[in-house]
Amino acid sequence: MDNSISIDRSQWLLDSPNDLISLKKWQNTVNLLAELFNAPAGFLVQYTPGGFQVTISSEQETNPYPSGIVIEPEANIFCRRIVETRTELYVANAPLDPCWDTNPEVHNDGFKSYLGVPVFWPDGQPFGTFCVMDFKETDYKQTYFDLIHQLKDILESDLSLMEMYKQAQKLAVTDPLTGLSNRRGFAILAKQRIHLAQRLKSQLGLFYFDIDLFKGINDDHGHAVGDEVLKEVSSALQVSTRDADVISRMGGDEFVALVSLKQSGDEDNILKRFNQTLTRQIAQSKLPEFTVSSGFANVDLLSSIEDIIDIADKAMFEKKKCNH
């Protein structure tokens, strides 16, 4: 749906979660880090110009930092040192080093030991840090260093997956009027999305939309008005779906939306949001009133794109016959 070239790295991932990554998997990875190190706290921390946010925090009562908290960018914390140097940092006993005298993690919360590694976006820019902290002095062996690097590779692979998906969107052929992908672009993005759904064992559905009596709108009001109608439908679809959903203008007055289904009834909620949004947009515009017919099909992840589109198209056509 989003045709931008890359992910907005100034935004916290927790504020705009991406359907292509599993925060549950990230949580399990951070929990595993803390458990294997027998440490009271482990973290995945994201860095932006706004500071350092704990994206994932290990789930122990001994951990004083919950997910979501933000530390201001100038604070003298361990993660800041890693982002600035782009290298791992191991501090066995921080109170012995005067450079950490103003570190709030040490002097406010009582941490002594820190081991962290940088986490990078695919282009080499820092995402943040993956780290473990302890209230006691530590003496980690090389195996522990190897382990934390191995686990952080899991996190970086998901960041790479997000970037690859954005690149696929960039390369897709788009419809110049609405900015959506066209039929060819949809085929490219849909294959990527279905592949991801197979990998993540998630469920997808496909909507097929058709503007009712669109030829009459063009004949009675002109093609400029018809173009505005197409733009309003495109806008309503974008508002009503998630960032990782794939929507497309297939040609003429027909649109499709390949959507993620997380729970029962999601498809009804998406359609309800679309209809409400479109009704509101029409009321706020000077366009003639119009309606849109829709069909829906659950996606068999082993079926071809063409078969899935055909099923949703037939469902839309049958509903349209009943309504007219």
Rank of each mutant, 00 (worst) to 15 (best):
Leu261Pro: 00
Asp266Gly: 02
Ala297Phe: 05
Ser294Asn: 14
Lys272Thr: 12
Ala244Thr: 15
Thr291Ala: 11
Thr277Pro: 00
Thr279Leu: 11
Asp268Pro: 00
Asn298Gly: 06
Thr279Phe: 07
Thr291Asp: 14
Gly295Ile: 06
Leu301His: 03
Gly251Ser: 05
Asp253Trp: 04
Gln281Gly: 08
Gly252Leu: 09
Ser304Phe: 13
Ile308Trp: 03
Asn269Gln: 12
Asp266Arg: 01
Glu267Arg: 00
Ser303Met: 11
Ala244Ser: 14
Ser294Tyr: 15
Asp266Val: 09
Asp243Tyr: 08
Leu258Phe: 04
Asn275Thr: 06
Leu301Gly: 02
Ile247Ser: 04
Ser285Met: 06
Glu267Ala: 06
Ala297Met: 00
Asp300Leu: 12
Ser264Tyr: 12
Ser303Phe: 08
Asp266Leu: 07
Ser303Pro: 01
Leu301Tyr: 05
Leu287Gln: 06
Leu301Met: 11
Phe290Asn: 04
Glu289Gln: 07
Arg249Asn: 12
Thr277Phe: 01
Asp300Cys: 07
Phe296Ser: 02
Val246Asn: 02
Pro288Leu: 08
Ser293Ala: 14
Ala244Asn: 10
Asp253Ser: 07
Asn269Val: 13
Asp307Ala: 13
Gly251Cys: 07
Ile305Arg: 02
Ser303Ile: 03
Lys286Phe: 09
Asn298Ala: 10
Leu271Met: 08
Glu254Lys: 03
Phe255His: 05
Leu301Gln: 06
Ser285His: 08
Leu287Ile: 11
Phe296Asn: 00
Asp245Gly: 03
Asp300Tyr: 05
Asn298Tyr: 10
Ser260Ala: 13
Leu302Pro: 01
Leu302Glu: 14
Leu278Ile: 01
Lys272Ile: 12
Gln276Ile: 12
Ser293Gln: 01
Ala297Ile: 02
Leu301Pro: 01
Asn269Lys: 12
Leu258Asp: 07
Ser264Glu: 15
Ala257Thr: 13
Gly251His: 07
Asn298Gln: 05
Phe255Gly: 04
Val299Lys: 01
Val246Leu: 02
Asp245Trp: 11
Ser260His: 12
Asp243Asn: 10
Gln263Glu: 14
Leu302Arg: 01
Leu287Ala: 04
Phe296Pro: 00
Ser304Val: 13
Ala283Ile: 10
Thr279Arg: 05
Val256Asp: 08
Asn275Trp: 05
Gln284Tyr: 04
Asp307Ser: 14
Ile282Tyr: 06
Gln281Tyr: 13
Ser260Gln: 12
Ala297Trp: 00
Asp266Met: 03
Arg280Ser: 15
Thr279Lys: 08
Glu254Tyr: 10
Ile308Phe: 02
Ile282Leu: 09
Gln276Ala: 11
Gly295Pro: 01
Gln263Tyr: 11
Ile247Tyr: 04
Ala244Tyr: 12
Phe255Gln: 09
Ser260Arg: 10
Glu289Pro: 01
Leu271Glu: 08
Lys272Gln: 10
Val259Ser: 05
Ala297Ser: 11
Leu271His: 01
Gln284Met: 08
Lys262Thr: 15
Thr277Tyr: 05
Phe290Ala: 05
Asn275Tyr: 13
Leu258Glu: 08
